[in-house]
Amino acid sequence: MLKSRIIPCLDVNEGRVVKGVKFQNLRDAGDPVELSFHYQDQGADELVLLDVTATRQERIAMLETIERVRQRLSIPLTVGGGIGSIEDAGRLLNAGADKVSINSAAVRNPDLIAAMSARFGAQCTVVAIDAKKQGEIFQVLTRSGTTAEAIDAVAWAARAESLGAGEILLTSFDRDGTRSGYDLPMLSAVTDACSLPVIASGGADSVAHMVEAFQHGAHAVLAASIFHDANMTVGEVKQQLTDAGIQVRNEW
């Protein structure tokens, strides 16, 4: 049986992890290589590096960061943030990413999903969807949540699947940073409408939140602050998930 995955997420800017990481036992808590290895050591099943840089110069630095992380990592690595073309995706894969996540560019140009899937395979084509509740639907947001699109997230997930995506990374804009748990109605709506694996993101503050997400169809959970603040190690989370009857990879 496939295991439920725990995926720490690191925001990287100019080769450094940003968004307050509070580890005591690391020499340099801002180094993405050291932090990635640290999470792998704790039993992370996969890692997501999110490029939050704005300039072209910094994007080149991101490629070096990915190369350095890849050298140390023996688990899958997904890279997202600012990918606009199939050439961008190819550069990230060449640097050592196993999967590439596309967001705004896929909304602007859905054919990019099909092109990436045909060239690199569905298994490395992740479509990231940011959405918030708007009346009766979940509205897609792009450009880091600043632009509301006239698109329903549930329909968009189904379309991404038909275009050749291999995985959906679903982030609730309403819940992100609130620590009030994942948006379960949105998660259920998307997992019902599309047969791809879905990674739930946004709002996790406890193992109970993760259990809820898995019970609502998530194949994986993404979490940042719960790990960065050193509230819990990945291993402690996996132990508690196991106690709650969720099957996780038996390494931590």
Partner: peptide, 10 residues
């Protein structure tokens, strides 16, 4: 089953 199979298995 979800396709692709993506993740850890025994």
């Amino acid at each position: 089953v979800k396709i692709p199979q993506l993740g850890w298995n025994e």
